[in-house]
Amino acid sequence: MASIDERKRSDGSIAHVVLYRRNGKQSSTTFDDPISALQLKRRMDKLGVEQALQLLAAELAADPDAPGLTDAVNSYVDDLTGVEDGTRTRYKRFLANDLAPFFGAHTPVDVIDDKAVARWVNHLQQVVGNANKTIANKHGFLFAFMASLVKSGAIPTNPCADTTLPPVDQAEMVFLEEDEFAALIDEIPRSWKTFVRFLVASGMRMGEITALRVGDIDRKRNTCHVRRAWKYTGGRRVLGRPKSKRSNRVLDLDPSLVAELRLDGRTRGDWLFVGANGNVVDVTTFYKTVWSPAVSRLMADPTDPLDGKKPRIHDLRHTCASWMLGENVPIHVVQRHLGHESITTTVNRYGHLDRRAGAAAASVIGAKLSRTAKPGLSVVGAA
């Protein structure tokens, strides 16, 4: 650990000395101003002595016209197009909480190298305690920012390009069979049954279904228009656009499900689904008072109606996809229904459930084999 000592010079000025051990010996670096000394101390505590001194040397040799980290990130975020204000706020929070304190708010961007990025990732994991997915998100932002600097010619290469990130373990998807969903819906309170049935039929995300208004339902065509979604920014819920361009979609619904919806006597601007207080559905309240108790009761049942499964709310979206693919709905139709931006996402996530292509391939090979089989050819192992 480094420390700072103040020493009075013969001319009366104050020297700010950073003390540290290097190669087993006591060493020091002196600054005229306390801010530079504090920054070096913090870097040494986080990066280690050698990396901190390398950054300091790089800064002293850096192009004086190179932009500082804070100014460069703010400029990058402000100039982004196609993003919402909440996204800009989140990116600037990354800067304030994760980038500036570690690298230094005014560090020239051209001195941040791959080793510094690697140490930053380790710091997020080992010191801050971020989840692997959170680290991947933060690194992804830094990668995109650095890529913009490469494109502009401010830096020659992207220091994030070869970073090895901790593995992100995707939560295992749960697909409910019809009888399992029937057991679940029986445990759901009557006032919430249509909401849960709508979730599995539409395959919507919770942020989408809770943002639906009465006017989004077309009773004549039995459709639902997904055009907005709730997002969380700074710990508060904000209504915005769906997750992606494809997420803004029109879904076909079964007429019997549309008939269950409470539409009569309501204005087009009313929330389609509301909580017990008449306001927009609160996801946390729904989970704690409706979903979790229902799942817990089923899991405690000796007959095990869920077959050992513990479904999350989001697993109803996965169940929707599995039911469609199980009945031979083309995977590109499933993609549109779920609002995936790319069919690659749908294939990667649910492709293993679509057995039609494999069955067709097996049929082709079987036909070839049957036409090439010689008369009287015995089956291996037959008597």
Rank of each mutant, 00 (worst) to 15 (best):
84 E>Y: 11
84 E>C: 12
84 E>N: 12
85 D>I: 08
86 G>R: 06
86 G>A: 06
87 T>C: 01
88 R>H: 07
88 R>I: 03
92 K>G: 01
92 K>C: 04
92 K>T: 04
93 R>L: 12
94 F>Y: 15
94 F>L: 12
96 A>Q: 12
97 N>A: 13
100 A>F: 04
100 A>H: 06
100 A>G: 08
101 P>A: 03
104 G>A: 02
104 G>N: 02
106 H>Q: 15
107 T>E: 11
107 T>I: 13
109 V>I: 09
109 V>K: 01
110 D>G: 09
115 K>D: 06
117 V>K: 07
117 V>M: 08
118 A>K: 10
126 Q>C: 07
127 V>S: 09
129 G>I: 04
129 G>R: 00
129 G>N: 00
131 A>P: 02
132 N>Y: 04
133 K>H: 02
133 K>M: 05
133 K>R: 12
134 T>V: 10
136 A>E: 14
138 K>E: 03
140 G>M: 02
142 L>K: 07
143 F>D: 10
143 F>M: 10
143 F>V: 05
143 F>Q: 10
144 A>F: 07
144 A>S: 15
145 F>R: 01
145 F>H: 05
146 M>D: 04
151 K>E: 13
151 K>T: 11
154 A>W: 13
154 A>I: 15
155 I>H: 01
156 P>M: 09
157 T>R: 03
157 T>Q: 12
158 N>K: 07
160 C>S: 09
161 A>D: 08
162 D>N: 15
163 T>E: 11
164 T>K: 14
164 T>Y: 08
165 L>A: 12
165 L>S: 12
166 P>D: 04
168 V>C: 13
168 V>Q: 10
169 D>C: 08
169 D>R: 14
172 E>H: 09
172 E>T: 15
173 M>S: 15
175 F>V: 14
175 F>W: 05
176 L>K: 07
176 L>D: 01
177 E>M: 12
178 E>A: 15
179 D>V: 13
179 D>M: 11
180 E>C: 11
180 E>M: 05
181 F>P: 00
182 A>N: 06
186 D>E: 14
186 D>C: 14
187 E>R: 14
194 T>Q: 11
195 F>C: 08
196 V>A: 07
